[in-house]
């Protein structure tokens, strides 16, 4: 929870197991084969100092972009995929009901502010999910409890990549 990771090797796989109200946000640059994944737990960090980078939606998106760029991604090519944000329980404590929906809204707003387009999204509902980002194949898969793994997004090699290669 709250973590953030980047991968660039084709054999790498980024994974977050058991997303309930939390959201897994992946940011990828297909041409450079860079993928970053954050496990967002809550919508905003305004009240909190020194939080882990991936924990809050408003800080996680800039951190994802920065880490991707550091790993060689180009900002203009970044695309996002998000999974999670379920409302698993109708009961709770405090004013914290339906954190899942608020997380999804906050992540989408932060991505829009950063001008990163969302390519695929599986959010809401009542079920927990596991999300995997396969760096080599550039695919994102989702699995629910007791279900089978389903492909949510497939980023076939970007046409821009070959255009760039020809230019050089």
């Amino acid at each position: 929870m709250g973590e953030l990771a980047v991968a660039t090797a084709p054999e790498d796989e980024l994974m977050t197991i058991g997303l309930g109200s939390c959201i897994g946000v992946a940011v990828v640059d297909r041409a450079k084969s860079v993928a970053a994944l954050a496990h967002v737990m809550l919508p905003d960090a305004s009240a909190v100092a020194n939080a882990p980078a991936g924990k809050f939606a408003d800080t996680a998106i800039p951190a994802l972009i920065e880490e991707s760029e550091r790993a060689g991604a180009r900002r203009v090519r970044l695309e996002a995929i998000l999974v999670g944000g379920a409302q698993m329980f109708e009961v709770g404590v405090g004013s914290t009901l339906d954190i899942g929906a608020r997380n999804a809204t906050a992540v989408l707003e932060a991505l829009a502010r950063a001008r990163v387009p969302v390519r695929a999204q599986e959010t809401g509902g009542r079920r927990g999910r596991t999300m995997r980002v396969h760096v080599g194949a550039m695919t994102v898969t989702v699995k629910e409890a007791g279900g089978r793994e389903v492909e949510l997004w497939s980023g076939s090699p970007s046409p821009r990549r070959s255009a760039e290669a020809i230019h050089r």
Partner: peptide
């Protein structure tokens, strides 16, 4: 107590969703 709620799902999704509610803002 308030009335109980029953959910069958992944352990991680259950525990993380509840911790978000109770201690989410702390570390």
């Amino acid at each position: 107590p308030r009335p109980p709620h029953v959910v069958t799902d992944m352990l991680g999704a259950i525990v993380a969703s509840l911790l978000s509610q109770t201690v989410g803002e702390t570390d």
